[in-house]
Structures are given as structure tokens and as C-alpha cells.
Amino acid sequence: MESLRFWVLELQQAGHLPDMFQYAFLTNALVAAAIMGPLLGALGPLVVTRRLAFFSEAVGHGALTGVALGILLGEPATQPLAALFTFCIVFALLLHWIKSRTQLPYDALVGVFLSFAIALGAALLLYVARKVNVHILENVLFGSILTVQDMDLLVLLLIALLGLGLILYGGNRALLGSLTPELARLQGVPVRFYDYAFVTLIALVTVASVKIVGAILVGALLLIPATSARLISRSGRAFFWYSILFATLSCFLGILLPMAGALPIPSGAAIVLVSAVLFVLSLGIRKWRALA
């Protein structure tokens, strides 16, 4: 972690970053963006291909309930990690387990779980609001990258390394299993294992990113950069790398613009708005290519 901070400090001293990045909390913000952007960008194509955008949104909203449970159980209000990760992982695995054993449309099932998570979170937050500062709950909803601490960075880095390992080891097989499950099984791919592993990874990444982007917006950062990349990509490889580029660029600009005063809004909203602008630009490029 210190090496990442030193890298940011070197950029600041070389004149590539404003003087304000000599402060530790802004350095932490930039380090978080450097980890989170490539991670969400790498997972985005699988989320889009497997049509799990609504699923990641449901897990993000489930984080509200996880935070509330953690505070009620006595965890620190700023880092209720045990309850947060436990609830969201159980939430994601239970949703996927029920999906594999019913004939309900997946979007309808996710809608049921999403409604449950929001209702339970809203009920618990009434009790939590009496015990903690309401601004802590606002940070959970909309994100505040300026409150990122060393523990948050460590958790994010560990999950990023886990995600990178899974993508390198089984990314192609997971993609094959999502596109043509029957063919994947004939080739010996354990489709069910990859399904549950990917769902768990999405839950972990979503929860780790909540403090930065916010529970309401975290699903958008998995979806929008990958969708933008799909609009202009002509191959699977380009789809993957464009998604990483757009997600990383969104994270960096979403931090730098508010800090420079150009976009005086919360970091989570700024990150998603930048990714939305990139989506519009990608749509324009696609239209231009069609006319050329």
C-alpha cells in the first residue's frame, strides 16, 4: 500500500498532479481509484454478457442492510465489514440458488430480492440513525472517496487480487459457460462452479466499492463502462480492454474534477456521470462508423 502512495506522491512532485494530492486522504482516494477502476472494468464485460447488471444493483442495495446490521451488532459505524460482507454474500448466493431451482424470470426474481433488501434496510436504518451520524449513512448511499481508510484500501486490494486470479484462471471458461452452457459442459467446464464463483466475486467487488461509489451507484460502474466498450469494440479483446480503460478513466476523472472544483458533487455521482458521458461519446462513435 505504501508503494502505491509513494507512486501518487511522485506524480504530485513531478507536477503531474495538483499540490492538494500531497495530503494523505486525497492520496488514498487516488489509490482507491487505481485499484477499483481496472477491477470493475475487467468484470464489466462478464456482467453485461451474463445480463447480471440488475443483480449487481440488488447486491449494492443489500449493502444498506449489511451496514445497518453491522452497526446494530456493535461493529464500528465506519467499517461494519463482517456484517456487510456476510449479508451481501449470503444474499447473492441465495438469490442465485433460488434462480437455479425455479422457472421464474431472472429479472422478476432479482426485483423481489431488491425490494426486500431496500425495505429491510429502510426499516433498520430508522434504528441506526439514532445511534450514528446521519452523514455516515449518506456516505453509504452515495459514496465518499475522501473517507477511504487504510483498511478499505487493503480490503479492495485483496479482492482485486482475488478477482484478477479468477479472471486469469477461468475467465474464458466462465464466458463460455455463460454463452453456451451445453457446449461448456461437453468440454468439461464446471459451469455451476463458475456460476457461483462469479456471483460471489460480483458480491465481493460490489461491497468493497460501496464506500467509494455508493450503494445506489455501484452497479452503474459495473454496467456503463462495459456497455460503452461494447458499442465501439470489434473483438472480444477490445471489449475487455476498452471496458477497463473507460472504468479507470471514470474513476480518476470522477475524483479529480470534484477536487479541482470543476464538478462540486460527491465523488460517487461524479464517477458515474463521467462514465455516462463516455457512453454518449461511444454511442456517437458507433453512429459515425455506421455512416462512414
Rank of each mutant, 00 (worst) to 15 (best):
S282G: 07
L137D: 01
L154D: 04
G37I: 12
P76V: 09
P264D: 07
L124T: 08
L154Y: 10
Q149L: 13
M151K: 09
R289V: 10
A160S: 14
L26Q: 06
M20Q: 14
V155I: 15
Q22R: 13
G171M: 12
F116D: 02
L93Y: 01
A77F: 08
L125P: 04
T180S: 04
P181Y: 04
L161P: 05
A229P: 02
Y127M: 12
H16W: 15
F198P: 15
V8F: 09
F239P: 08
S282P: 07
V207Y: 03
V210Q: 03
Q79R: 15
P190C: 02
V132I: 15
A208Y: 01
D195L: 09
R5E: 15
G165D: 05
G70E: 12
L137H: 07
A269E: 03
I224C: 08
R185H: 12
T147S: 14
W7Y: 08
T180W: 06
L81P: 02
R185I: 11
I136P: 00
T49C: 09
G261D: 05
F142S: 07
A33S: 10
G171L: 08
K287T: 02
L69F: 06
L183V: 15
V207S: 03
A290L: 12
D152M: 05
I35T: 07
F246W: 08
H16S: 11
E138V: 02
P225W: 13
L84D: 11
S100K: 02
F6M: 08
M36A: 09
G111F: 13
T102N: 12
L154G: 07
V189I: 11
R185A: 14
G74D: 08
D195F: 03
